[in-house]
């Protein structure tokens, strides 16, 4: 196995319980199962995938193909909170470029990167569907609209 040397800090029985809940659905339980586990662990490790594959009867290669297809599933460690900044048309028209720069400045990282303390991962995300709040970003599940560089600083508590 590649990269199974990661040390896991998560609660294995809790993951087992999630898998058990979705087991009866077989492959149709794959997406919700992976999503629930990831909400717990942050990302999907090879050994989690092996457990899920064995219990839901899904080939391992297929699980990898699925994870790699969906942008909200992660196969590498990410920060505790993922910041998704929208830079599509409606947000661009309302100043998303400035918002994105201030996220970059305050976090000291670029899109796709994670802060050294593991707190944040920054992403430029395709249109998130909150164009009435443009420019906007999501921090985890929280939506923040009408952003300005000042508001970004407040959100990150850097002032």
């Amino acid at each position: 196995m590649t990269e199974t040397t990661e040390t896991f800090t998560y609660d294995y029985p809790a993951i087992e319980a999630i898998v058990t809940r979705h087991e009866a659905k077989g492959r149709a339980g794959l997406l919700p199962c992976l999503q629930e586990i990831q909400a717990f662990t942050g990302w999907l490790t090879p050994d989690i995938c092996q457990l899920v594959g064995r219990r839901l009867d899904v080939p391992l290669a297929d699980i990898y193909g699925v994870i790699d297809f969906y942008t909200l599933l992660y196969r590498e460690p990410v920060g505790k909170t993922i910041i998704r900044v929208c830079d599509d048309m409606a947000c661009y028209l309302n100043g998303s470029e400035e918002v994105l720069s201030s996220f970059k400045k305050w976090l000291g990282i670029g899109p796709g990167e994670t802060t050294p303390d593991g707190k944040y991962t920054l992403e430029v995300h395709p249109c998130l569907g909150y164009c009435d709040l443009a420019p906007m970003a999501m921090m985890g599940d929280d939506v923040h609209g009408h952003l300005t560089p000042d508001k970004v600083a407040d959100l990150l508590e850097v002032k």
Partner: peptide
Amino acid sequence: FALTTAGRGFHSHITTFFDQP
């Protein structure tokens, strides 16, 4: 079932579970 398509769009590619040999 050793192989899968991973990624998507232009950067789709054929690989194995977590790119293992």
